[in-house]
Amino acid sequence: MIMMATSPVVTESATAPVPIPAKIPLVTLIIAILVAVVLGIAGTGGALFYLLRSGRLPLQKTVAAETRPVAPTASRAIVLDPMVANLADAGGAAYLKLSLTLLAADELMKKDGPKAAKGISTDDAAVRDTVLMVVGQQTANELLAQDGKQRLKSALKAALAEHNPELKVMDLYFTDFLVQR
């Protein structure tokens, strides 16, 4: 008799029970989802607001139906004769020789203002007076600084708008600019 070795047969006994996850209450689950959605919307909105305010996300305004060509504003140049003004430097020895051309809105300009005795209109006299008053408050060092002319332009525009409101100055140009110390 020949005996063969056989492996013992293992029968599966009862397997270990699989743990069932604990049930999350439905109300808690809904609240958690709502909080997550609100936080997501707030975060996205905050990021968009930051990007728009910082200029990193420019908006393109496309209004194709209502695009109308803008009529250019009628303007005319007013060329002022050269002016010489004492500057506010100590000792009073510095002066500025200045020539200006003003670009003014034409529809608001008087076509022919009353003439003064020397042939200068009263509008020109008022403008020259304003320019001389502003220039007389400057010093040579201020005018010769890197941004001196630009600051003088800004001061002149503001003074002309304040003292001559009927004259709508759009821009002004220096045609001569000489500082003597």
Results as ranks from 00 to 15, higher is better:
Met4Cys: 04
Ala5Trp: 13
Ala5Met: 09
Ser7Thr: 09
Ser7Leu: 09
Val10Ala: 10
Glu12Asp: 13
Ala14Asn: 06
Ala22Met: 14
Ala22Cys: 06
Lys23Arg: 07
Lys23His: 10
Leu29Cys: 02
Leu29Trp: 14
Ile31Glu: 07
Ala32Trp: 14
Ile33Asn: 09
Gly40Gln: 09
Ala42Leu: 12
Thr44Ser: 08
Gly45Tyr: 13
Gly45Asp: 08
Tyr50Arg: 06
Leu51Trp: 14
Arg53Trp: 00
Gly55Lys: 08
Arg56Glu: 15
Arg56Ser: 11
Pro58Tyr: 05
Gln60Lys: 15
Thr62Asp: 13
Val63Trp: 12
Ala64Gln: 11
Glu66His: 13
Glu66Gln: 14
Arg68Asn: 02
Pro69Cys: 03
Ala71Lys: 01
Ala71Leu: 08
Pro72Gln: 06
Ala74Asn: 07
Val79Ile: 11
Val79Trp: 00
Asp81Gly: 04
Asp81Trp: 07
Met83Thr: 01
Met83Cys: 03
Asn86Ala: 10
Ala88Glu: 07
Ala90Phe: 07
Ala90Ser: 09
Gly92Lys: 01
Leu96Ser: 03
Leu100Ala: 05
Leu102Gln: 06
Leu103Ile: 05
Leu103His: 11
Ala104Phe: 13
Asp106Ile: 00
Glu107Leu: 07
Lys111Phe: 03
Asp112Gln: 14
Asp112Trp: 01
Gly113Pro: 13
Pro114Val: 07
Lys115Trp: 07
Lys115Leu: 14
Ala117Cys: 02
Lys118Thr: 04
Gly119Glu: 06
Ile120Asp: 06
Thr122His: 14
Asp123Gln: 11
Asp123Leu: 07
Asp124Thr: 08
Arg128Gln: 13
Arg128Lys: 08
Val131Asp: 00
Val134Ala: 09
Gln137Val: 13
Gln138Asn: 10
Thr139Ser: 01
Ala140Lys: 02
Ala140Gly: 10
Gly148Glu: 03
Lys157Cys: 00
Ala158Trp: 00
Leu160Gly: 03
Glu162Met: 06
His163Ala: 10
Leu167Asp: 07
Lys168Leu: 03
Val169Gly: 05
Met170Asn: 11
Tyr173Gly: 06
Thr175Trp: 06
Asp176Lys: 05
Phe177Gln: 03
Leu178Gln: 15
Val179Glu: 03
Gln180Ala: 09
Gln180Glu: 14
